[in-house]
């Protein structure tokens, strides 16, 4: 557990091994990759149709969940559409905004650019899983206190990302916070307040 969270860059190895498993699974089942490409249309149409759904079991916010999902479904869409969570947001669906940030075994990942079926047995935490019952997580409290958002659409991602950051580096400097939170865009630009919130959470002030 501790070893995984300290890996840097986060979970690249885990990601590769998961993609391999998933890739092999898809290839064996008829190659969704070619079927979705527009160019070799006729050939693809003749190929075996991809399976409509695949099973996957994972732990989300401490609860074991099993679902059958389209192999093309991203982890983000599975969390939102299949499991009914609304915290992780789809801002870009291309790994550029951070609104979909969730924690994989404590490490932050972008859930939009990874397939749900790759997460067999994984432990995922979304913003919904941070509070302890009615008691907000210190980072959540700090975001409220420092007004670390405006529209709030990036906020789930910012908060999960900040929790991941503090796990990686419990005493970040201001410059480190700015740098390490830069994968999470905020178009409302609540940045100064986000920094203040993360700083105060790190200092245990909230």
């Amino acid at each position: 557990m501790d070893e995984t969270t300290r890996e840097s860059p986060p979970s690249r190895r885990a990601f590769l091994s998961r993609s391999l498993t998933a890739g092999a699974g898809l290839a064996a089942l008829g190659g969704t990759g070619t079927a979705t490409a527009a160019a070799p249309a006729v050939a693809a149409a003749a190929a075996v149709d991809p399976p409509e759904t695949l099973p996957v079991s994972l732990t989300v916010n401490g609860r074991r969940r099993t679902l059958r999902t389209d192999p093309r479904t991203s982890l983000l869409d599975a969390l939102r559409e299949d499991l009914g969570l609304t915290g992780p947001k789809k801002g870009c669906n291309q790994g550029a905004c951070g609104a979909c940030t969730v924690l994989l075994d404590g490490t932050r990942i972008l859930s939009c650019i990874t397939f749900a079926v790759m997460f067999e047995g994984a432990e995922i935490t979304t913003v919904e899983g941070l509070a302890d019952g009615d008691r907000l997580h210190p980072v959540q409290r700090a975001f409220v206190e420092h007004d670390g958002f405006q529209c709030g659409f990036c906020t789930s991602g910012q908060i999960t990302s900040a929790v991941g950051l503090l796990a990686e580096n419990p005493r970040p400097s201001t410059a480190e916070i700015k740098e390490l939170m830069s994968g999470n865009l905020c178009r409302c630009a609540a940045y100064p307040n986000i920094v203040a919130a993360v700083e105060s959470a790190a200092e245990g002030r909230s």
């Binding site: 939102r80 969570l85 609304t86 915290g87 992780p88 947001k89 789809k90 979304t126 913003v127 919904e128 941070l130 509070a131 907000l136 959540q140 975001f143 409220v144 206190e145 007004d147 958002f149 709030g152 659409f153 906020t155 789930s156 908060i159």
Partner: peptide, 18 residues
């Protein structure tokens, strides 16, 4: 603090896509 802050920091806030 914003009246909807609790919803926004817990993922409970509902936007159109939700």
């Amino acid at each position: 603090s914003r009246v909807e802050a609790g919803d926004k920091v817990t993922g409970a806030a509902r936007y159109t896509e939700d």
